[in-house]
Simulated scan of single mutants.
Amino acid sequence: MLTPVSNGPAVVACSTCRHSAEARDDAEGMRGGARLAEALRTVRETDPRYAAIAVQEMPCLFACKDFCTVHLRAPGKVSYVLGRFTPDEEAARAILDYAAHYTASKFGRVPFSDWPEGVKGHFITRSPPEGFVAT
Rank of each mutant, 00 (worst) to 15 (best):
D88E: 13
M58E: 05
V81L: 08
I53G: 01
V78E: 01
A51E: 15
L61W: 01
A51W: 05
S79C: 11
P87H: 00
P75I: 07
A51V: 11
P48C: 04
A74H: 06
E57V: 15
L72Q: 06
D47C: 11
H71P: 02
D47E: 13
D88K: 08
T69Y: 04
R73H: 10
A54R: 08
D47G: 11
K65I: 05
A74Q: 12
Y80P: 03
K65Q: 15
C68I: 12
E45M: 11
T69A: 15
F85R: 02
G76D: 11
P48M: 04
T46I: 04
K77M: 09
F67K: 01
D88F: 13
D47S: 14
D66I: 11
C60I: 12
A52Q: 05
H71S: 09
A54K: 02
C64N: 02
L72R: 02
F62A: 12
F62C: 11
E89P: 06
A51K: 15
C68V: 15
D47M: 08
V81Y: 04
C60V: 07
F62G: 04
P48L: 08
A63E: 12
L82Q: 00
R73D: 06
A52S: 15
P48A: 09
R84C: 03
Q56N: 05
A63W: 04
P87T: 02
L72N: 08
R84M: 02
A52W: 01
K65V: 10
A63K: 06
P75S: 15
S79D: 09
P87C: 03
K77F: 02
P87E: 03
V78M: 09
V78T: 08
H71I: 03
P59I: 06
H71K: 12
Y80I: 07
P87D: 01
C64Q: 08
Y50C: 04
F85I: 13
E57W: 08
F67I: 07
L72C: 14
P75H: 14
Y50N: 01
A54T: 07
R84K: 10
